[in-house]
Design a protein around this nucleic acid. Structure first.
Lengths: 366, 366
DNA sequence: TTGTATGCGTTATCAC
DNA sequence: GTGATAACGCATACAA
């Protein structure tokens, strides 16, 4: 045997054989000729005032640098401190093969803001491939290695999240999520943005505006409708059932004939909800074309969101853009607040109004 | 007072006030009437044989369940001396605003493979690493907090990498990188793939083949040329200087006239190098069109890579695809090996041959 | 101003 | 088979 008897279980003696290991504070201390505690004090910068002499401090810093010291994140966490790591957990793959459906735009903002605040990001590879340890409760538990965690996606298991929140672990959900009391989230302010679009139309002179929406009760849909109705009310325009056209299949129900009927009734502007497929907007545009109408000459069109990629080439619709970068950044900001033990802030991020070429003044009454 | 004098500094007594804390193994042990070590043994399932009685095991499991015990990852990883974190370092932002030039395709594979192996990813960014402590050479040191690190991009400072390698820190570079002895890397096997393309042409009957390449000495270029030449030799086709056309500006130098001259000399197939801009391929196609020739009727064209995005709509060129997903996965696999203290493996990943519509048999001699 | 002592929750070793 | 006990690396109250 190599070792006589009292051999430590894990042979981690720095200079000894085997794989070299990360330098620890103890080694920095030895090199600097101080105690481990002093190293901790210097490096954590907690000894603000004059607790430690400049000379000692410098010696420690030099030693740390020359050794390439980096704190052990697990040990930091265990000691009830923080490790400057923010987790990002998405229930679906963060980098799906289909780029379209990725969180990429959000991550851009997340990365930027995290970097600006001195955090590193840990991408917890959730269910992407259901590796060895598939979706047990354990899987979610890994995120506790970080100081806090950002959750993306619709299918986050609320039960697990609830527990984290209850335990006081900082959690932020990207996207409105009000089912769970106490769960912090950030989301786009569709209500205000939709209201603003109506205001824009009203101030251009439109008096009768109709919202075309699909048959979906997602928050993103109901928020938009609410904002739309609020906008009508604020501008003293007629609301009521007639102002909202809800249809299961816009392509079939928004016909040129229907369009003409609306116009005959005095409607001069239409607002389309934004959905995954952009069905409402698509149907509206098709109907206008088929009816031989021109926009914004004969009527105005607005879109409560961004046009689908395949229609990006067409005329720029008046509406708003969901600020995905800013949403990511806002989520990180809120998470940082929670990590610091402060209160959560305003969860809503404003959407940017987009003045397009599909709206104008209503045509002169005949 | 509950405790006379030696009260622990941090009041974490389970039932006490302050932040709620999750059950620990000690409490499970108390409930089950065993020792904490036994709990650890049972839960970690390490006592395979018959170290622990089935009855005890069951009591422990029941206790753990009823308490909702979940292991503390920080403690687990502290004790295990590793944190199951793999670093991903890119000198440019990991998520650039311009999606086209991102590492996205690689990250897809990286994420998938990391998840399959139970690793999480720490994303470091050259510009971001430590918003506070700006981008000195220190920035690179931060990656040591992970168990190992993957490096992407061309501009990685080799001096720093060298030190990490020397220190025994597991490092893998994505992309061939042989300047640094001992630096592990994975890359695409352009040599074999190019050879295969030539083989394909030769077996179709072509006897004179010319490579069009740009004036660049990157490994990706020289590898392709080497494979091309090897392919010629293997098929007993004429090599030599005439077989490679190296030009600084393909658009100007690959003219319809030049093309006709080659054809007159008996050349029946052309192979274009792939570059960022796709210049060689672009020039070749333009020259063929301008000369009024048809492909693969009058001549065959092959591309040593994938066509540029804007030409994706055109005919599918015969050639090969760089398996970016697989490269990312292979890099993670190699990194995992190094972290486990094992030897690095084969660094080359095969490219997938792509049978396109731009090659066929050579035209019958006049 | 610096060093000493202790605990965080786990794992692993070794007597019992 | 089971239960003390000693690290793991760090932070911190307290003594010097």
């Amino acid at each position: 045997m190599e070792q006589p008897s009292k051999r430590p279980r894990r042979g981690r003696t720095p200079g000894a054989g085997g794989r070299p290991s990360r330098p620890r504070q103890a080694e920095v201390a030895r090199l600097a000729g101080v105690s481990q505690a002093t190293v901790s004090l210097v490096l954590s910068d907690k000894a603000q005032g004059s607790a430690i002499s400049d000379e000692t401090r410098q010696r420690v810093l030099d030693a740390a640098r020359s050794l390439g010291y980096v704190p052990d994140v697990a040990a930091q966490r265990l000691a009830a401190a923080r490790n400057n790591l923010l987790g990002v957990y998405s229930f679906t793959a963060t980098f799906p093969t289909d780029v379209e459906h990725s969180y990429y735009p959000f991550l851009v903002g997340v990365e930027r803001e995290a970097a600006a605040r001195g955090y590193d990001l840990v991408l917890f590879t959730g269910s992407s491939s259901g590796g060895a340890k598939a979706a047990g409760p354990e899987a979610l538990n890994r995120v506790r290695l970080a100081d806090g965690c950002l959750f993306l996606g619709r299918h986050v298991p609320l039960a697990e999240l609830k527990r984290m929140v209850a335990d006081g672990f900082p959690v932020v959900h990207l996207g409105r999520r009000e089912e769970l009391e106490g769960l912090a989230w950030v989301g786009a302010d569709y209500v205000s943005a939709s209201r603003e679009v109506v205001r824009h139309l009203a101030s251009a002179g439109h008096r009768r505006v109709v919202l075309i929406r699909e048959d979906d009760d997602a928050p993103a849909s109901t928020d938009r409708q609410q904002g739309f109705l609020e906008g009508l009310e604020a501008a003293a325009l007629p609301g009521g059932p007639g102002a909202v056209f809800r249809c299961a299949d816009p392509a079939r129900e928004v016909t040129p004939e229907r369009l003409r009927r609306w116009l005959a009734e005095g409607v001069t502007a239409f607002v389309a909800e934004e959905t995954d497929t952009g069905g409402a907007w698509r149907a509206l545009r098709a109907a206008v074309d088929a009816a031989g109408l021109s926009c914004p000459g004969d009527l105005s069109l607005a879109l409560l969101g961004s046009p689908p990629p395949d229609l990006a080439g067409g005329p720029q619709p008046t509406g708003f853009d969901v600020p995905r970068h800013q949403l990511g950044a806002a989520a990180v900001r809120m998470l940082a607040l929670l990590v610091a033990g402060e209160e959560a802030q305003e969860p809503l991020v404003a959407c940017a109004f987009r003045a397009g070429t599909t709206t104008g003044s209503p045509p002169q009454p005949r």
